[in-house]
């Protein structure tokens, strides 16, 4: 057993884990933060995506011990006292989720994408979320949600959230 010290959603934590404990299990089971999900066993689906030192990461493919000294953000850490994070607002306003299972991972991935590329094209967004599977939405509205969040984050005019359902 090893002790891991890290910061998660702004809070310092010390947790004792086995060397083999996967980071996603530490977050879900030991910290009881269940917003981070598990959708596969081959690092393919991205439902477990979190931010580690600002980088989007598949927490099923990292050991908990690797989090030592790091700063982690999960979906639980996005909203603040002032309200929702722009990416959360984007997903809600644009119907970017159905069952909600892939949503936390999708949003955390999108945050890093937008930090590196504040005004991405549709193509860049699609490639940028290619490590996250969604089975419900067909991705159209996820693309719109990310575009909306990007506009909000860079202070641009917000795109329409009306469905283009001719």
């Amino acid at each position: 057993m090893r002790e891991v010290r890290f910061k998660i959603n702004g809070e310092e934590k010390v947790v004792t884990v086995e060397s083999r404990t996967l980071l996603v299990h530490m977050i879900r089971e030991q910290l009881s933060m269940t917003g981070t999900h598990i959708g596969c066993d081959t690092s393919s689906c991205g439902a477990c995506t979190i931010l580690i030192d600002g980088k989007s990461a598949k927490s099923c493919t990292l050991l908990a011990v690797q989090a030592n000294g790091k700063e982690i953000i999960t979906v639980e850490g996005l909203a603040t006292a002032e309200g929702l994070h722009p990416i959360q607002e984007g997903f809600k306003e644009n119907h970017g989720l159905h069952c909600g299972f892939c949503t936390p991972g999708m949003m955390l991935r999108a945050i890093e994408l937008l930090e590196k590329n504040p005004d991405p094209t549709e193509e860049e967004i699609r490639w940028g979320i290619s490590g996250n599977l969604c089975r419900c939405t067909g991705y159209n509205n996820i693309v719109k949600a990310i575009q909306y969040a990007g506009a909000k984050m860079r202070g641009a005019e917000l795109p329409s959230t009306e469905p283009e359902f001719v």
């Binding site: 991205g46 990461a57 991935r109 490590g131």
Partner: peptide, 9 residues
């Protein structure tokens, strides 16, 4: 190569 998260590591 794989996907953006994998390429981060």
């Amino acid at each position: 190569i794989a996907d953006p998260q994998v390429r981060n590591f």
